[in-house]
Write a protein that binds this DNA or RNA. Structure first.
Lengths: 152, 152
DNA sequence: TTTACTGCAAAGTGTTTGCAGCGAT
DNA sequence: ATCGCTGCAAACACTTTGCAGTAAA
């Protein structure tokens, strides 16, 4: 479905927040919105730099941080050493991460929001974010080394 | 699953794996098992160093990595910049993380393993780890700044 | 005795920051 | 014309690694 409503132009987002609209910011947001999900800072940098070779990595970090602050981007702490970023608006989803090849598959589950409700009721917390990461092995990686049987 | 290893002496754990038993390793494992959960490497270092002042931070990292490899310790990627570590054997549990004060509360939920089952069935993955992190604000932090009404 | 392990310091990642010039408003 | 934003390089926090000495087996 087209999601114009969700995907406001960068201009609007920044303006509303009283920030300046710069080509770098529009570019980075565009990379996040149209590229694959779960890009890390360096991937964002490389993709954006193809379109604006003068772009610096610091600007990428500063912009990611700003967009996170503005609620346009979510920073994810997956099972890796660096962070991944993803444009918001694609709806709630969770991650299935292959420890063999690093592939990240998204999934949704009604159970996740049940956990949220359950814990808000019992803990007194207000829950603003739900993160579910399942780690394991995809069928390809299983096939590649699983034929030998489960390791002790 | 196998939980016979709940609190084996460090000696047994290391021996079985063909590694040497050193005082540093036993100490670090003890700190993890008897201290609060979710320590980061530096906290482990500080606590262990109180008991053995000659201990080095590198040894802490090397030992954490080894214990992870041996399945004695789990490395967690919470909503912070560094990793947290936790001795295994305390049973499956998940995290409620306060974005205000950093407090981490553990909880359990039968729904989590339902998500695992659901996804194993539909994705073809073998899931070896389930991580559920809820982020939000604890009641104390809500009280401290929530009096002004809910922020957008 | 052998050689895996340790402490130290130096190097490596990923990320942040100070500063002078640039450019959106 | 302002002053927020950028690029650059240097600084940073966390983690890993090379090496020579130490200690478990």
């Amino acid at each position: 479905m087209r999601d114009e409503a969700l995907t406001e132009p960068a201009r609007t987002v920044l303006r509303t927040a009283g920030r300046r609209t710069t080509s770098q910011r529009a570019l980075i947001l565009d990379v996040l919105r149209h590229g694959p999900a779960h890009l890390d800072a360096d991937e964002v940098y490389r993709r954006a730099k193809e379109r604006d070779p003068r772009l610096s990595l610091s600007t990428v970090y500063r912009t990611l941080s700003l967009l996170k602050e503005l609620g346009q981007v979510e920073e994810e702490h997956l099972a890796e050493e660096h962070h991944h970023y993803e444009a918001k608006g694609s709806g709630e989803h969770y991650h299935l991460i292959c420890l063999g090849c690093g592939q990240v598959v998204e999934f949704t589950s009604a159970l996740a929001s049940q956990i949220k409700a359950e814990q808000e009721t019992s803990s007194g917390y207000i829950v603003t974010g739900v993160h579910v990461d399942l780690t394991g092995y995809c069928s390809a990686c299983r096939a590649a080394k699983g034929e030998l049987g489960p390791r002790a």
